[in-house]
Amino acid sequence: MKTELAGIRKTFGETDALNGINLEIGEGEFVAIVGPSGCGKTTLLRLIAGFETPSAGEIRMGGHTVAGPDHATPPEKRDLGMVFQSFALWPHMTVSEQVAFPLRHHRFIDPALKRDAAGRVRQMLSMVGLAQYGSRMPSELSGGQKQRVAIARALAPNPSLLLMDEPLSSLDARLRLELRNEIQTIHRQTGTSIVYVTHDQDEALAMADRIVVMNGGKIEQAGTPEEIYSRPDTPFVATFIGKANLIPGDWRDGRFHPFGSTEVAWAVPDVAPVFRDTGLCPLRPEQLAFGTGEGIRGTVRNVLYQGREIHYTIDVGQQTVDLVTGLAGRLSAGDPVVLQYRPIPVGSSPAINEMEYR
């Protein structure tokens, strides 16, 4: 089912929570909505779910208008499922009963699924790795297991659209990684459209077909993870998704002169016009390297060993620059360095960015 948002605006009093949102979610697409706290991403999800009514604009699902300024189809009359951050399991129901509940009450369920509810429950619990947990109560489950139950319950009636509101934020790092893989697998198996709200940029980059970056109630950029990371449209996107260095300088004849240098010129491709217009160049930490000869001189401030790579913070005048290298030739705080641009594909493994500094 295709979902379309056209000219969506949402106000609370005199505050615009959303302003001019235009977005299309394709059938079977996994869309992640990311942004800082207060950017409007949860409000957007609540509008799609039917918990809020837009102040202006329309929401269409499957070609039918489900929301506008004067009306909103209630959530139970939209063909969707929802997974919350807080799990939202009923404490008096077993795991199997949790998953079976929407099979009895979902308006759009296929009659065949309803007739074989027990089989569908077994299928969903097996899909999320809880085949042997059907008789347990929520109090007997870990946090990760509870979230798996919530996902199975939301998917049991086979909704056309699944909404997920920061579903992994309350879990520890290991469980988040584990459930990322599970959600990706489930998405491939079911083909359900997913709108996934998160503040975790790594989750969005790892899981989504398309990322929507929001800021101040508006969409800053929408595109594939590769487009968002490699070719950010604005300084906000460059620094929010990953951690780009916004290096000041001059653009002359298609080349960038960092920090106003007349001797050093870098040929950096695919830089959005806004950066050229404002005298900035967004470079990811893996696009900088230590070298000899011409370059930008600086001093190592901090050294962070990360196992397979080393993260450096470099003082260059009044600015700091982040750089990632492999393990060879480790430097120490206070060492003088020369920074050079390394034209490698953005996002390549930092381990190949071995240091040439001697």
Rank of each mutant, 00 (worst) to 15 (best):
S349C: 11
S142C: 13
G223I: 00
G334C: 05
V197Q: 06
G347Q: 02
S349R: 12
R107F: 08
M1D: 03
Q201V: 11
S126Y: 06
D116G: 08
V213S: 04
I194K: 06
L327Q: 05
G298P: 15
V338H: 05
L89K: 03
E294C: 13
D79G: 01
P258L: 00
A154M: 08
H187I: 13
R342S: 11
R301C: 12
V324T: 11
E140F: 05
V303S: 02
K218R: 15
P336E: 00
T224S: 12
R188H: 13
L155Q: 10
G20E: 07
V66C: 05
G329S: 14
V271E: 08
W266M: 07
R231K: 15
T3V: 09
P69Y: 02
S126K: 14
T320C: 11
V337L: 05
E203M: 09
I247G: 03
T190I: 12
L288V: 06
G63A: 02
T262A: 14
L304N: 14
E182R: 11
L89Q: 00
R308T: 12
F108S: 00
S348V: 10
G50T: 11
D253G: 10
P75K: 00
G119L: 03
S139I: 03
D200G: 13
I228E: 13
W251N: 01
P225Y: 04
P258Q: 05
H92P: 09
V300L: 12
N158E: 14
P69T: 09
D200P: 07
D200T: 11
S135E: 12
I241W: 06
G57M: 07
G216R: 08
D315W: 10
L175T: 08
G50N: 07
F275Y: 06
A333E: 11
G35W: 03
S261Q: 05
I310N: 10
R231N: 10
T224W: 06
I8A: 03
L44Y: 05
A173R: 15
H92F: 01
P345Y: 01
G57Q: 08
A333V: 09
G119T: 03
T292P: 15
N245Y: 03
D16P: 09
H71V: 12
D270G: 04
D202I: 15
D172H: 04
F275G: 08
G217C: 04
H71K: 15
G279E: 04
V34I: 14
T3F: 12
L89T: 02
G249R: 05
S169I: 00
S169E: 11
I194L: 06
W251L: 01
I344R: 15
V271W: 00
V31L: 06
S169P: 01
F108E: 01
Q184N: 14
Q221W: 05
S193T: 15
A152F: 01
L246V: 05
